[in-house]
Design a binder for these strands. Structure first.
Lengths: 141, 141
DNA sequence: AGAGAGCTTGACGTTAACGTCAGCGTAACG
DNA sequence: CGTTACGCTGACGTTAACGTCAAGCTCTCT
């Protein structure tokens, strides 16, 4: 009764999750407490579904971009709250568009930063003992 | 004697900095304590140079990418420590290359995230009351 | 000279995102 | 049936990145 053959590999234990995503149990429990994940309970144990795994992927990705868990939680909710009422979906779309704008701006800035660093590297390569490199282009935002 | 005409707008007070970069005095002092900035002292007051401003731009940019202040400090030091010995410069280049690799990977991930979110938005737009959108592509890293 | 305005240095408080540890449950193994 | 392994729940500790006073200088203006 514990092993439904149809549910093979459908869910993962906390240890399997930790191994697969390189996080600690504490982190997973913490994310659950923050309502970023919502694993099933088998008695008292947690079982993580595909949904949890998909969300965790997005969480970890978001973190690398410098988003807070709260930011991420809001963005995540956009992905699976579909059958709600129209007003709520409208609001969700707004948030999504905002996030999108932020990420695209971030990408643009990343491109600048990459270009800067490349230039610095190139300059540093040419003059093994020459001039003093000035600070890169500066635009006050 | 306080106003050298040649030094016009060369340096900025802490208030001017705060207004220009939208940060608090506390933040600037904090960054100085962490050796990210090194303003001149006029008596006891701080005067921020162009170098400080250039660095602050990079600091704030780096923060938006999710880098820690310590990460940023190390990267910043690559930009202006030129006249050092060869070994040190060698090391600096290594760090710069690492950062570059990280940022390029981050850019790639950002593209994926942007594509995901766009897809979700598009799907959400087409079905005003249709199906259930599944979670986006999932690759365990 | 007195009153602000603006700046300074401590020093302690706060929030996010976990780490760490203690104490307890339970499930399987020898 | 004891114990070893894994899991759970608090509860407190920690680090980064500041916020928030308190108390004291130093110009400047009136």
């Amino acid at each position: 009764m514990t092993r439904n053959p149809a549910a093979k590999a459908e869910v993962m234990t906390i240890r399997e999750m930790c191994a697969a995503y390189d996080v600690t149990p504490r982190t997973l429990r913490f994310y659950e407490a923050k309502e970023l994940l919502s694993p099933i309970r088998e008695g008292t144990r947690r079982l993580f579904t595909r949904r949890d795994r998909a969300r965790l992927t997005l969480i970890l990705r978001g973190k690398r971009f410098g988003f807070s868990l709260e930011d991420i939680r809001q963005t995540l909710d956009l992905y699976d709250r579909d059958g709600s009422d129209a007003a709520q979906r409208q609001r969700a779309c707004e948030i999504a568009r905002e996030r999108l704008a932020i990420m695209e701006a971030q990408r643009a800035e990343l491109d600048v930063a990459i270009a800067d660093l490349k230039a610095e590297l190139a300059a540093s390569a040419t003059n093994t003992a020459t001039q003093r490199g000035t600070a890169p282009s500066h635009a006050a935002e």
